[in-house]
Design a protein around this nucleic acid. Structure first.
Lengths: 129, 129, 129, 129
DNA sequence: GTGGTCTAGACCACC
DNA sequence: GTGGTCTAGACCACG
């Protein structure tokens, strides 16, 4: 079962996007694999203190993207293969990296300075709660 | 006069925040310095194809944060000193770096891998449009 | 025994309605006649890979409409007479025809064009699976 | 402005699908053309006695399919070109025709009988209210 | 219990 | 006023 233990809501970003992001990051991290069972909409919404429809929106998009499969009355499961996995991974990494690079560049930092900053702050990231 | 030449709208993020971000990044980059003149709300909104209210919102926040000074009927100017500059710089760098570090960690990358990725993608950032 | 050999599930339409439709179409086609035996709920649900409740719902409606007769512990049988047969036939034909005519009209086709289309696609209907 | 004058709700079919169908039929009929303005979510939902979210769902799907374009704060417009028009037309006609043909066949009618039925019922379709 | 649709109504970002 | 997100909660189809 996919875990949402370390999921923290940030504000300013649509919640359904944060759910999508969390799942996609889990896929890239290898924590989420093919055929994994997803928590039901009701359970997850209760767990995160959200409305079921918000979770439903995230799940619907995942299904539109072919990453999960769900049928009325049945649980929902991850549907991953090499191609999808690669696609998710590439998109996610590219977006995160380019966003950061762009911001650093815009602030006038050099490549080396940016990389140093990233390494310096690495250990300050809030660890698992 | 503060430049918005390289300003590109991204969707999904409130436009007024993008304006704020652009100006703060310019401050950190040293392109924007104390007493610089800001384009008028009307001019900037026309330039960026935005609603004047959206620009107004960004300017109001900058004023609330003490970074600019504006008076009715007069031009607006940057009001920066060492302390404000440091504050803006630290906040911006910390946010960008921590966000990226958190995302990379969540994806299961090591510190070295993340830094390498950042350097690898560095030159791919779209240059001046 | 009533056959479900050519029964294909379509999605988007409630399954119990599809079962009802299948039986009524069989009645109109003359394949299903008075006193025919129906498969038991359990057998049919197993055959179609459905939940017994879904089949039960379809059977209950058929019984409400007086088209079948069933008693606890006994097999179910079709109960058709001239009047019921005519009613089912007229309802079904009218609904199918009017639905199609309405859709064709709404799309701006003429009567002749619609009839031609119907004849043209006639042979493309998937034959017995 | 796209009209919903002749729109009648049918039950048993999800409302958002009926809205989609109505618009697509209008496209095929040539009543709806490129750059046509759509009624706002609020206006249409009030007009049809629906919840705004139901209309929003239909509009979202249309946007996903590339048939309309909408931006926050701005009205929504049809975005059609030859390719999309052909796609919508082909899908709609094929579905309606095949559904009808399949039902008629299943009821044991011949191609000629079905076409005759369609022509006979043609004028009975409820005319514009 | 699970997925899907729908209503009622609020708040935000934007024009 | 317009599009987009979200909460609260109901009902249906299905297993």
């Amino acid at each position: 079962m996919i875990s949402f233990d370390n999921f923290k809501l940030r504000d300013g970003i649509p919640v359904y996007l944060q759910i999508l992001e969390h799942i996609k990051q889990g896929i890239v991290a290898g924590e989420i694999v093919n055929n994994d069972e997803l928590p039901s909409r009701r359970v997850l919404s209760a767990l995160l203190g959200l409305n079921p429809n918000t979770v439903q929106k995230a799940y619907r998009i995942l299904e539109d993207e072919g990453l999960i499969e769900s049928h009325a009355g049945a649980k929902s499961y991850m549907r991953l293969d090499g191609e999808k996995l690669r696609r998710v991974r590439d998109e996610l990494i590219e977006r995160v990296t380019l966003d950061a690079a762009e911001a650093f560049k815009r602030m006038g930092l050099t490549k080396a300075e940016a990389a140093a900053l990233l390494e310096r702050y690495w250990s300050e990231v809030e660890e698992e709660k």
